[in-house]
Design a protein around this nucleic acid. Sequence first.
RNA 1: GUCCCCAUCGUCUAGCCCGGUCCAGGACAUCGGCCUUUCACGCCGACGACACCGGUUCAAAUCCGGUUGGGGACGCCA
Length: 481
Amino acid sequence: MTGRPHAGFHRRVFRMEQVITRFPPSPTGALHIGGARTALFNWLFARSRGGKFILRIEDTDIERSTEESVKAIIDAMEWLELSWDEGPYFQTHRLAVYREYAEKLLGSGHAYWCECSGEELEKRRNAALAEGRKPKYDGTCRSKGLDRAPNRVLRFRTPQTGTTILKDIIKGPIEFENSELDDLVILKSDGVPTYNFAVVIDDLTMGITHVIRGDDHVNNTPRQILIYKALGAKLPQFGHVPMIHGEDRSPLSKRHGATSVMEYKRMGFIPEALLNCLVRLGWSHGDQEIFSRQELIEKFSLETVGKSPSIFTMEKLLWLNAHYIKENSPQELTRLLKPFLAERNYPEKPDHFLAAAIHTLQPRTHTLVEMADAMRFYMVDGIEFEPEAAAKFLTADMSGVFSGLISELSKLETFDEASLEPVFRNTAQDLKVKLGKIAQPVRVALTGGTKSPGLFEIMEVLGKEAVIERLQKGLKYIETV
RNA sequence: GUCCCCAUCGUCUAGCCCGGUCCAGGACAUCGGCCUUUCACGCCGACGACACCGGUUCAAAUCCGGUUGGGGACGCCA
C-alpha cells in the first residue's frame, strides 16, 4: 500500500483509457460487510482492468468522523489485503479545491448563496411532508442575489425542467425528472462541502473513471450528474450495486450480530474466505463457488453483477472458511493461528509441532477459534478428563489393555501411524474386540474427551514419551476408581 | 406522501438480454445413507423456487402491463 498524501493533483493529466476506481468510506465507524464488498468490487474492477484503486476518506462530517475509525478502516482493508495505489486522501485536506470549484459554479450562475436557517428549513420540510408534498427546498433565496456572508450556505441551482438520465452499468438506464430535484446545499455555512459536492469534485479531479457504490446512492446520482454538467465535465461511469441485508431483510446493522469486518477476524475467519463469500453476494460466474484472488481478478466483471439485494448469513462463510482451512498449508495456518493460541495462554511449542498438530485438525474445524480450542490437548500437558467420557471409557476392565499397550508401545523404535496401527489392531484381535473398543478409552486418556483426530495421527504428533506418560496417567485413573 | 430500484429453492445464485434444449441447474443449510477407531472430511441420495394477475405468442422463468411485497432516497449525514 502506498500512501502519498497530497492534495494538489487536480490539475494532473490522465490517460483516458486507464481505469481508476475508488473506495470512499466515511470514518464514522468500523468497516462493515457492505462497505467491504463495495471496496472489493472497486478493487477487483481496477485490478482486472490493470487500473488504479484509490482510498479516500470522506471526513466532511466533522462531528462524527474520528481518527479511530480511520485506523479501523485501514486495518480492515489491510487485513483483507485490498491494497490501494493512492491515498488515503482526506477530504478535509482538500477544502481549497472544493472552494475553487464552488467559485466556478458561482461565477457561471450555477450556484447562489442562501440565508435560510436550519430551523426554518426544518419547519418547511415538516410542513411539506404533512401536506403530502415532497420536502424539497422551496427556492426562497434562489433569486435574491445574496453575497457571501456568515451563516450562509451555497446552493446549487438545479434546472427545474428536463430529465437527467443515469446510464448505470449494473441497473441499466434510469430516468429522473429534474423537477423532482431541489437546490441542494454544496457548501455548508462553515465552508465545508457537502457529500454530493465533494464526491463530484473528488471523482472529477482524481480522474475516477468508474464510480462503483451501493445503490442507496442512486437517487443522489442525478444531482451529481447535474453538477458535472454545470462544470462542463465529462461523466464517469456509474455502477450501483445492490445492498446487503440482514436475515430479516432490513439493512445490515448492529442488531444483526457481527457486521464489522474485524469482528470476523476475531471470530477466526481468514480473509480469503470472507472475500470469497462477499464477492458471491451479487456477483457470480456460472456455478463456480470457490475463487482464488487471482481468479477473481481474471473473472470479475461489472456486467455480471446482479440487481437484487442479498442477505448475508454466516452459513456459507463458515463452509468457505472450513474449505480454506483445509486447503491452506499447515505452515500458513500456523502463522494465522498463533495469535489465537497466545490468547489462550498455551505453553509455547515449536512451529513444526504446531504445524503437525494443525494438520490433524484441518478437516475438522471451521474457524481458527475452533481450531485453537481443539489444539488444547496438544498444547497442555496436564489435560483433565471430561467426567462423562472418563466414566464411560476409563473403566476397570481396561486396566489390562492399558498396561499391555504401554509395554508394547514402549518397544517401538519408530513411533508413527504406520507402526502404531498394527499394535492396536493386534491387541484388538487378541482380545476379540473391535478396534473401537480399545480406541475410545485410549482417546480419552490422550485427549481428555471422545472426539478427536485419528488416534494414530495424534499419537505420532504427541510423540512416544507424551503418549506413554498419558497412558500411564490413564491407567492410574482406572485403578483408582 | 413523492420519486427511484428490486422480485427463481430457507439462504447465495445459474438461466432471463437473443422466448422452445428448464416438469428450472449448482452451492450452503437441513434430512437420510455409505465410509469409519471417535468427531469430522469425503462420497451418494432426498427435501426444496420461477411472488400474483392479465397480455403477446403455436410456445414465457424468459417479452409487455398491472397488483402485491421488499428496499432505497427525499439533511448545512455520507
